[in-house]
Nucleic acid binder design. Sequence first.
RNA 1: GGUCCCUUCGUCUAGCGGUUAGGAUAUCUGGUUUUCAUCCAGAAGAUCACGGGUUCGAAUCCCGUAGGGACCGCCA
Length: 442
Amino acid sequence: MTTITRFAPSPTGLLHLGNIRTALINWLYAKNSGGKFILRIDDTDQERSKDEYISQIKYDLEWLGIDYDETFNQSSRFERYKEQFEKLKSDGRIYACYETPEELERKRKLQMAAGGKQVYDRSALKLTEQQIKDYENDGRKPHWRFLLQTERMKWNDLLKGEIDIDLTSLSDPVLFREDGVPLYTFSSAVDDVDYNITNVIRGDDHTSNTAVQIEIINALDKNKISFAHHALLKASTGDKLSKRDNVISIDSFRKDNIEPISILSLLATIGTSNSIELKSGIKQIIEEFKLETISTSPGRIEIGVLKALNKKQVQKFDYEEIQSRLTEIDENVDKKFWDTIKGNLETVEEISSWTDIVFNSKPAESDDKDYIKLALELMPEEPWDDDTWTTWTNAIKEKTGRKGKELFLPLRVAFTGLTHGPEMKLLIQLIGRDKIVERIQT
RNA sequence: GGUCCCUUCGUCUAGCGGUUAGGAUAUCUGGUUUUCAUCCAGAAGAUCACGGGUUCGAAUCCCGUAGGGACCGCCA
């Protein structure tokens, strides 16, 4: 049987490290076993779903290199949900409820005050025909609940092991709203069955929900789906992740010029027993993927690790790989320029600060003017090569008796305005004699 | 309140009854680079949340406690 997994985001916000991790795990699980991966947009709640988020989600996935064999929107399947709803209804698994949200809220508060279970009391089941008629005459429309019959739902979770949930501690789930809109608990179960999903891998927050869904799936069909629940990720502070937490959205990382492979490498590492390292590409991540390496305890997102991985990737780039990106930043960036500068970059786009230093004359104030003046006098004529710097500084050394930091640091500052940077013997060739003279003389 | 789950170096983790508790990363030191980064070599870093029990022997099994998380919605 072919493995089929799915990622089912609701388009109510941006994708972040947490939910993209779930997507990646599902994608890798499918890829690793030669299976299929489906992108399902859970947009049954039309009020909260936004088209812009749908395109953003697809763009983020594409940018990261996570492709899908098939995609569909739940909003296109309302008829099918209705059909399956009728089936469950005729099987007597669904019953009509007439409580308003306010009434339900009041019940919950009462239950909480009494210290009992906050579970729906099934009073709708005891309604007389007359009471129902009265509600209907009042203009109330029913919402529909699924009658939970299992006391304890057990399954073998691929990540958490044997799970045993007390279903009597959970309310009968509402499957259809008063306005006829199917709820996630139901539409998801219908789709997972219809699309022959073999493995549902999702966050730990769905664990008790899974108990409910298994019973629904069993009522629809024979359950053949294997479930796995991974621990959620925590923010670096130890707090839970939020959809509104923009600092970890994929979009924000892209805007910060973080490379996709850096994000993928972090995701393939965090909360797993894998070594923290930069991966060579998505292919390596697929090959190395093992579901069992994913931990059941929540991992912390360390942005510092992401940045370190990205830095490694930047320094790994060959000029040819990113030539168009570089020349777009500055057309004068050639291979020599890139190779000289890349060791000092954390993102590719940071190169712009160096094109500025190299190409635009930026005179730096020196408090060591006499020394700089002397250096100018001793500066070799062009053409310059890799030995020029040594020849030059040796001459200065001889004349002044300076050595080490005293010798070179004032020069670096005078040429670049910075106390650190690429190797001087290469950098001075990039800047060139004319510009250096210009800078020193100012 | 109920249900389910988690807790091992700063961080991510290995560990499945006998280990000097291993690795990765970060940190520090030395070497290389006449700076920084890279690279190489090395070091330090964990009373295995706490308490009890089982056992000749517990990070590992059992019970309890504490801390943390998820869910308990006409959201997903």
